[in-house]
């Protein structure tokens, strides 16, 4: 009755709400945990102690070099057609403006195609992207590529409608990328409301002028750590089921949703197994990644360090898409492995979370999945996720302890059973 015991302990028993309470203590104490920040360093130290005090095994830190970018002071004011102070968030890796800022006329476009069509109008202007939200994967391209595409046509800065499915005047930050050979221009996200307003103004023929100041700076890379803890396997200790989330966040809100929840249900999975006195046949390894938000930096270096043992990884798991009410598991692997995962998920019938979806993925586990290791990610109710993602609204207030309990139970049952089965998951 292992699955039932895990579910009972996590959802109804003594340790219900534990992952929520543990997370609240960390994020209320430390706050957001930007790559390269003192906050992230402090969070890693606290987690190292927490995992040791929890009685987990082989608790250690694995060194990683990570980027260090800081946004500094930033502001944007519309000067024409009326004075309007705008909420902005500079995008990760953006350069700052020159001292005194940039004052320029705006060109509003709804897409990269429109930018190309109107390239002759773009020189010397601030490009405002008012792209519609058509899902995260597609829309995020404007955040990541917006500055490069604007710079290619001679713009001096870019302001991008936040990648958010809902807005109450909230800017949402995130990483952006420059391209070799293309001038670097300052870039920030603005609110959905302001982007849409400027689009309306432009369509009426209004001239729009914005003054933008950004103090963003990139500093030399710095040392950080992936945080690792284990329950060592009883029969095949060299074989691994990896359970993970990332400990870093952006520098706004509390990083509770992204990805405090994922990191803490992953810790909870090991805690539940340990508290029930269980020891799977192969090792359950918890990894709390560093610098995921900068492009999976910690995970990339972990992969380089450990890929020689790739044949020993039965399953890699990451929770980085919220810990709201789970609907199932996303899974990538061979047909045989998928059939096995369906049987494993049947153990979660008491929670009515039995579905196995396609496309197990995560920035931090994709290295392994692409190399043929079966991968799983938590599938949950994403309705509210992009309301808060990368914004000041990413706080404990949006987290739900009962939903985290269910997520932790799902995570623990899957991790334990796959780690304890007689054989590793079959590969293609």
């Amino acid at each position: 009755d292992v699955a039932k015991a895990i579910i009972n302990l996590a959802v109804y028993g003594k340790y219900q709400n534990r992952s929520y309470e543990r997370l609240g203590l960390l994020v209320d104490t430390v706050g957001p945990r930007l790559s390269g920040s003192k906050n992230l360093e402090k969070a890693i130290q606290i987690m190292y102690q927490n995992l040791q005090q929890d009685g987990l095994e082989n608790v250690h830190l694995e060194q990683v070099r990570i980027p260090h970018w800081e946004r500094g002071e930033e502001s944007a004011v519309m000067l024409e057609p009326r004075i309007h102070k705008m909420a902005i968030l500079g995008l990760g890796s953006s350069i700052g403006t020159p001292p005194g800022g940039i004052t320029a006329e705006v060109l509003v476009v709804a897409s990269f195609d429109e930018l190309q069509r109107r390239a002759s109008e773009a020189r010397g202007k601030i490009i405002v992207y008012n792209q519609p939200y058509t899902g995260y994967e597609k829309t995020v391209q404007y955040r990541v590529q917006g500055a490069v595409e604007a710079a290619k046509v001679g713009a001096v800065a870019s302001l991008i409608q936040s990648v958010a499915s809902f807005s109450i005047y909230s800017p949402h930050t995130g990483i952006q990328k420059y391209q070799d050979g293309v001038p670097k221009i300052p870039t920030a996200c603005i609110t959905v409301e302001d982007a849409e307003m400027m689009s309306r103004m432009a369509s009426r023929g209004n001239k729009i002028v914005i003054h933008l100041e950004m103090g963003a700076k990139t500093y030399p890379d710095t040392d950080s750590f992936n945080t690792v803890a284990e329950i060592t396997g009883s029969m095949y200790p060299e074989e691994v089921v990896l359970v993970s989330g990332h400990l870093d966040s952006w520098d706004v809100g509390q990083g509770a949703l992204d990805d405090g929840g994922g990191a803490f249900i992953s810790w909870e999975a090991l805690s539940l197994v340990k508290d029930l006195g269980l020891r799977p046949k192969r090792t359950l390894r918890l990894v709390l990644w560093t610098a995921e938000e900068q492009g999976g930096i910690g995970a990339s270096q972990y992969y380089e360090l450990h890929k020689a043992n790739i044949s020993k990884y039965s399953l890699v798991m990451e929770a980085d898409s919220g810990t709201f009410l789970p609907t199932g598991l996303q899974f990538t692997g061979s047909d045989k492995a998928r059939a096995i995962m369906k049987e494993v998920m049947n153990l979660l019938q008491p929670l009515n979370v039995t579905k196995v979806f396609s496309n197990g993925e995560g920035t931090d586990i994709n290295f392994w999945i692409q190399a043929g290791v079966p991968g799983a990610s938590l599938r949950d109710d994403l309705y509210k996720y992009f309301f808060f993602h990368h914004s000041h609204g990413d706080t404990m207030t949006v987290m739900d302890p009962k939903q985290m309990n269910v997520a932790a139970a799902v995570w623990a049952v899957v991790a334990y059973v796959v780690a304890d089965m007689d054989e590793m998951l079959p590969r293609s």
């Binding site: 699955a3 045989k336 049987e343 494993v344 334990y416 007689d422 054989e423 079959p426």
Partner: peptide
């Protein structure tokens, strides 16, 4: 050993299914 040398399990899916059901 957890995985046979050729990487192919000799067990039937029915056996694996029964094993998993034991965790219920």
């Amino acid at each position: 050993k957890a995985v046979f040398k050729n990487g192919v399990s000799q067990r039937t899916f029915r056996e694996i299914k029964e094993e998993i059901a034991n965790y219920e």
